[in-house]
Design a protein around this nucleic acid. Structure first.
Lengths: 148, 148
DNA sequence: AAAGATTGAAATTTCAATCTTG
DNA sequence: CAAGATTGAAATTTCAATCTTT
């Protein structure tokens, strides 16, 4: 019974497993980088996506971008709204839809978080050359195109 | 106020963010692949690590390999023990230590899960060439070497 | 009925405190 | 006191059911 066989990356599953594991490690690092800014990675991600698109997004689309359940988005936005980093705004066009909108304070906190995150850059510099970073990034962005 | 700047991979932070996101996507796929085998990805990971090292491992070391809190390992093993997939065994050498040991049924379920996971291979085949898979895998394994 | 969002319950993970052994 | 593990509480995420609007 060969159990010690799951080692290299012959199979595509091993690749997914490696991706899942690397993702965990990355998350842990980012989370600890944000520790002093009073934001969890999940909360910062919300602010980031809103900032990226210019300030607001329907909760449903936010859920797609965050790759999480929509009920989670509701509660995430609840907490962010309690901290005045985000506001709920009714969508004029479709009254079923609710927009999460970045507040000025939310925008500041997003930038604060970004600064904190950038502080971990040096760590990664030791691990990857710029060329390798580009290569890795290019490969990662391909994931999720087909079935994501 | 340039908010739409976080796009390419100039910075190392963007790479970590991409890793975290890709990890989520990978996890979701693996989890749904395991759906019919009655195992969550977290539980299968435990079985996998035990199988990889030949059958048993102290809970602490299991936590390191899984990159999760030790209290989580305790509860993970609780549930696996309830399902008779793993047994707790006292460590003869150090009575503080507790080993998680794969049962015969646990070993079977590990292989069942592996089969289910391999079924998602075809999806990935469309997304990456063998050469790209090797490249991506090689890069991922470098993560966590320095500060893990 | 379908889409968007919310609610409450359950599963999972983490954190702080505690217990036992070295 | 250090190390290894466990417990209970809190935070986070998911799932199923529900509500409103299209």
């Amino acid at each position: 019974m060969r159990d010690n066989q799951v080692a290299a990356s012959e199979s595509a599953v091993d690749l997914l497993l490696a991706l899942a594991h690397s993702g965990k490690i990355a998350e842990a690092r980012l989370d600890s980088a944000l520790e002093n800014s009073g934001l969890s990675l999940a909360r910062w991600f919300v602010l980031q996506h809103l900032a990226q698109v210019g300030g607001s997004l329907p909760l449903g689309q936010l859920g797609e971008r965050l790759a999480c359940a929509k009920s989670n988005v509701t509660q995430l936005v609840d907490r962010l709204e309690a901290d005045r980093l985000v506001e709920r705004v009714h969508d004029a066009g479709d009254r079923r839809s609710v927009l999460a909108q970045l507040t000025p304070e939310g925008r500041r906190r997003y930038h604060d978080g970004l600064r904190a995150l950038n502080a971990v850059e040096e760590e990664l510099r030791e691990e990857y050359s710029p060329e390798e970073r580009r290569q890795l990034d290019r490969l990662l962005r391909r994931l999720g195109r087909h079935t994501g």
